[in-house]
Amino acid sequence: MEFGPYLMLASLEGAVTAAVLALTAVGLSLVFGIMRVVNVAHGEFFMLGAVLAWWVSSWFGGPAAVGFIAAAVIAPVLVGLLAAAADMTLLKRIDYDPERTIVVTIGLLYVIQQVTLMTYGPEARPVEPPFNTRLALPWFEWGENGFQLYWPWGLSTTSYKLFVIAAAAAVLAAVWLLMRHTKIGLIMRATQLDGEMAQVFGIPVERVYAFTFGLGAGLAALAAVLIVPIQQAHYLMGGDPLLLSFIVVIIGGLGSLPGTVVAALLIGMSDGIISVFFSPTLAKILATLLVALVLVFRPQGLFGTRAA
């Protein structure tokens, strides 16, 4: 293949990564923005989403689409409820103290991960995609007859990958609408601005926190349900999304939703493209160093206005 089609393929793969990453990172960003809490167990909620998706879809059996839709509804709700319960039993008890929260969520990370290992086992298991048509993609060239399209061998994507991108965009739009144009969103934003003042005005801040923590985890779980037909469900799959979401949230400015989405596109696309042309390990080294240096020299992130 020539360079052009190759780049197009890499950017399509990158767009799928970016879509899933944006969902996961927005969940992390919501929790940080509203509760001022860094949730280290976020990657495990992602993993739980994938594992539950496998569980639900194999329990339903029948056509792949039925199992997938059931998984997309049930898995995020279950994960969200679990996270809300964790918020009420653990985080509330330590008053959302930033450092102790990190230690507790590290503990939660190991408990969730290892309990999954004990019950689900160490195997990686796939979920069947509801539809998976192979779509050949055209490329153009300047031949003897001027401009013409042709279908290079190997340049293709699947309908499911395009669906992942569209679904992620739709969910992100829904989150934006929820935050901007509903009463729940208004209450959440009020809590974000000043939790104590919101409480004085009769907002049940504790319930808002539990809802936010559940919503953030649910978004991560939904992202995992979307990716699990492409990538298999495994009990250690939470590590990479956690690290990448951290990177995205920090580059995008902690707590800024538009910044998070822009950064997710940037990181997801460049991760896809860089990994095609260079070593993925080198790409990760550069990304982690970049994040550390951004936090040191520009703590408000590249797009944000507020310090961490």
């Binding site: 930033p98 080198l282 020299f297 703590p299």
Partner: peptide, 28 residues
Amino acid sequence: ALALRTAGVAFMIVTLMFAQAVFLTILY
């Protein structure tokens, strides 16, 4: 010298990221 320019949560994340970079460098 670098990480101490930050404090609190940012300090934890910066040290985490540097350690991750060292880990990946060993693999690389």
